[in-house]
């Protein structure tokens, strides 16, 4: 791969991570906003009327406490995945489970499908062989394919992310509802294809089935290593 392509891929990778983290920070602000308002509501009730056991006050407290607990649990989960995501570039090449990698980035992805009102569904096959590759570059490729797929879809459509294996390869399928296969043929630009090649993988559109179309990202598994 020539230096210019290598550099462009690197720039796009940084851009992808920036967009993912920006989406993540928006989500965090929303969760913190709810925690702050719920806490504020309890403070208001105490400050304005004192602690009373009337049904309305008790109900407000219960709802606020429940909202805080749920949001804190969700934020903790997000931060756990963010931490994993942030440490991926520490080891340029490592062996990992593709499902773990997807679980990390999906937390950063899901905001984009939510904003487009697209239902995102995961089907992660258990027991997949490990992959030995560049996890950070793979996350960039997953993000780029995901965004390109979202651009093909409209509100109310579905996007499935499905993992599976076929002998010595691991396959990540992006399944787009209400989409024809022909509309996907020009989806991938040269830089994305070059990034996939760097992963020693392939990116292809599958056979059209009924009302959905597939994009398949194929990555060699650890068992394929020479």
């Amino acid at each position: 791969m020539d230096a210019m392509t290598e550099n462009t891929i690197r720039q796009e990778q940084v851009g992808s991570f920036g967009q993912m983290v920006a989406g993540f920070s928006h989500d965090m602000k929303n969760h913190l906003g709810i925690i702050r308002e719920s806490n504020g509501l309890m403070s208001d009730v105490i400050a304005m009327g004192g602690l009373s056991d009337d049904e309305a006050s008790v109900e407000r407290f219960k709802k606020s406490i429940d909202a805080i607990e749920r949001r804190v649990a969700h934020v903790a989960k997000m931060l756990h995945h963010l931490s994993g995501f942030a440490h991926r570039p520490d080891t340029p090449y490592s062996s990992f489970q593709i499902n773990d990698l997807i679980a990390e980035v999906i937390m950063l992805f899901e905001r984009f499908s939510r904003l487009k009102q697209i239902d995102l569904a995961l089907e992660l096959e258990e027991g997949l062989p490990s992959v030995y590759n560049d996890p950070s570059l793979l996350q960039h490729v997953l993000y780029r394919v995901y965004i390109l797929c979202l651009e093909q879809l409209n509100a109310g459509h579905n996007l499935g992310i499905i993992t599976g294996q076929d002998e010595k390869i691991v396959v990540v399928t992006f399944r787009l509802s209400n989409t024809s296969q022909t509309s996907l043929n020009t989806l991938f630009d040269e830089n994305l294809q070059a990034a996939v090649k760097k992963l020693e993988g392939t990116l292809e559109t599958g056979e059209a089935i009924h009302d959905h179309a597939d994009v398949k990202l194929v990555i060699p598994s650890l068992s394929a290593e020479k």
Partner: peptide, 15 residues
């Protein structure tokens, strides 16, 4: 669109 945020803010303003 954050239902809990909007509802809680509304209650705090009503108070």
């Amino acid at each position: 669109d954050e239902v809990e945020f909007a509802a809680t803010l509304r209650q705090r303003l009503e108070l």
